[in-house]
Amino acid sequence: MGRFVARRLLQMIPVFIGTTLLIFLMVYSLPGDPIKALFGSKAADPATVARLRHQYGLDKPLLTQYWDYLTGLFKGDFGQSFTGRPVADLMSDAFPVTIRLALLSFAIEVVLGVSLGMLTGLKRGKLVDQLVLILTLVVVSIPVFVIGFLTQFTLGMKWKLITPTVQDSMNVGQLFVPAMVLAALSLAYVTRLTRTTVVENLRADFMRTAVAKGLPRRRVLGVHLMRNSLIPVVTFLGTDLGMLMGGAIVTEGIFNVQGVGNTLFKSIQTSEGPTVVGIVTVLVLVYLVSSLVVDLLYAVLDPRIRYA
């Protein structure tokens, strides 16, 4: 187990370096000069431009800049945005909001998705099953931003149940509707995935054995069926947490949630290189760590899987 974790952690290093390098190269080789943009429509003073370029290290070769960034990162320094604010500071404002939003979505997706999947899997072919399946197809087909608009329009403008945009981004109650919208797509996937594995496992030998042993229905469904059916679902959920945080760009934009997605999108639009790279670095870390956690969870769910 310990050796497996160590090996996985070592494997994560090249991926982490590769991904951050990729995003770094993309952001900094973009045309358009962020320093000149700071001057707005005024003509830029060449001496000041040169000084600022030097201050942000933009006069060095790209790979040297990346090396500086990486070494800074290990000291906990994410660099400075072109507006002069430390990126770490910007992120400490945005991440708490998005973590709330993403965790809320994640909870909705897990609880609702797994229970709907179990329900439809057990009632295969019945009316509930058909209804939920059609509903998931509809949800998967409608792009998230359209779902967001429709929710905002019906709940916010027509029925006035919620304010059309979020007023206080740290308020979990107000984040509930955006979290629903953010979760919708993954919720549909989780439901379908759980249903498929439940249907497969219902025919499995161990299920027949469990029933034949005379175990109570609760235990058969709750332990024997659930535990075996959750393995592929956990795989999906593991990669999904990172996606939820990155995918919040659209949802946060529609509902005006002041989180990572919003900050990231604004930074991309204004070529705020350091902020984009910083946020993506953290998102990549979340993605890598959650896929590691998934691998470890396999062993908990399925004792047949052993890590040498």
Binding site: P14, V15, F16, G18, T19, L22, I23, M26, V27, S29, L30, P31, G32, G242, M243, G246, G247, I249, V250, L264, F265, I268, Q269, S271, V276, V280, L283, V284, Y287, L288
Partner: peptide, 24 residues
Amino acid sequence: SRITDIFFGIPLLLGALVMLQAFA
């Protein structure tokens, strides 16, 4: 496989956003 992992680390929408921003 490592190259695949590297690209997997960046979600489709995010990567496309950063890349397309470069094109006027």
